[in-house]
């Protein structure tokens, strides 16, 4: 399970709600990174052998390995393309956003 984008984050609206000094809780995601992407990775599961190189190399850790098939968290994938480039089975293709694979 990847950390989730908190879509209904309550921004501080009073002094008491502001972080004290510069101390707040670790791990609070309030904006996604999906808007950065031009191409998105799409996995062809029939070719995937679960070598997990994509999972390992992904800077953003968006590839999940808890399901039967690998998953991609598109909220936080920036579309760098490392996964597709490194896949030894060429099971991942980079597809332009807005287009179907």
């Amino acid at each position: 399970m990847k950390p989730r984008w908190i879509k209904d984050f309550h921004y501080p609206s009073r002094p008491e709600e502001l972080a004290f000094g510069a101390c707040t809780e670790a791990g609070v995601l309030i904006t996604p990174n999906s808007g950065w992407r031009v191409f998105r990775p799409v996995i062809d599961h029939s070719r995937c052998v679960r070598c997990l190189l994509c999972w390992t190399y992904c800077p953003d850790g968006v590839i999940g390995k808890e399901e039967k098939e690998l998953t991609i968290d598109y909220d936080y994938c920036k579309g760098c393309g490392i996964c597709a480039h490194e896949c030894p089975k060429r099971a991942i293709s980079m597809v332009k956003e807005g287009k179907r694979p």
Binding site: A19, G21, A22, C23, T24, E25, A26, G27
Partner: peptide, 8 residues
């Protein structure tokens, strides 16, 4: 118990 982020 409750991880923090400081001096951000």
């Amino acid at each position: 118990e409750a991880p923090k982020c400081l001096s951000f």
